[in-house]
Nucleic acid binder design. Structure first.
Lengths: 153, 153
DNA sequence: TTGCTCCTCACGTCACGTGAGGTGGC
DNA sequence: TTGCTCCTCACGTCACGTGAGGTGGC
């Protein structure tokens, strides 16, 4: 069924542009083991990516950007995303229900952890926004105190 | 009046520990021109920081951390914080009301810009949190579909 | 065949980390 | 005097940026 749809593949430049990064970054992530490299790619031949590969890389980039992680921390935190294949890819055709259940069960706590970290970040950002708002208020107060409106007094 | 309170000064190690960074970072920021260095410091003598210096550095660190700026972008965005001296320091004794008004007026749009950037970041983070929540929901749905509860059927 | 994008080195850069060797205040 | 923290080089590292020189598919 899903077999009938041949997957479109994307070149590294297309992926990079779509994600707003450079090809160098993608190659570097591969070098660091963050991207699973197809074992059959001949040295020197073009890299090709599926939509699932792109989605995974997109997740990695968001985690790194919003949480400010090193690539090492990212590697740990993202092992889940391996199992995120479950959402696409060859998941449909090559896995038994039992395997799927096991994969999802092991992936859930990891996504929960990511969500917790993001939520902690949200709280800290909200604090910072409040600090800036307070500062603006104080500045306006000071202005009012220092330059009383003409016509008053 | 404010003269009567001699300001406590802090050494670089104290400042670093308080802000959760290293002394190297502080020296590097000074080198890059992000921190105003007192012109009278003899080469080789200890760096000393006031509470106002520490507050300014704290602001810089938050802007960098939450917005993911380069030090060059940070330099631009933070020129305001120079004028933030207005909140402490020698502001009380060496400035006329007219000067204060001018300083505050020029600083306000800059703080507003910082706040806008932080709010934009908050929206993107909220989107990301939502993506993770959706993903978790889908995973739970899939589990229910794949492993129907015993006793049913 | 001509462009274009891709490839693999490999050196450069930014924002620090990490000693080496030495000086200065409680 | 002994520790402790500070100082100034200066080289190392992480996460890429940026060519150099060459190969491969429309």
């Amino acid at each position: 069924m899903a077999n009938a749809v041949p997957q479109r593949q994307y070149k590294i430049g297309e992926v990079a542009e779509h994600l707003g990064i450079t090809a160098r970054t993608i190659r570097y992530y591969e070098e660091r083991g963050l991207l699973d490299v197809p074992s059959d790619r001949a040295k020197g031949s073009h890299r090709l990516y599926t939509e699932a590969d792109i989605a995974r890389l997109h997740d990695l980039l968001q985690l790194r950007e919003f949480l400010g992680l090193t690539l090492e921390e990212l590697t740990e935190l993202a092992e889940v995303t391996q199992a995120q294949q479950c959402l696409q890819d060859r998941w449909d055709t090559t896995t038994t229900d039992e395997q799927r259940v096991r994969i999802i069960r092991s992936a859930i706590p990891n996504v929960q952890r990511q969500l917790q970290l993001v939520q902690a970040r949200q709280r800290r950002l909200a604090d910072f926004a409040q600090q800036l708002t307070d500062k603006l208020d104080r500045m306006h107060d000071n202005l009012r105190r220092l330059s009383p409106r003409r016509g008053r007094r």
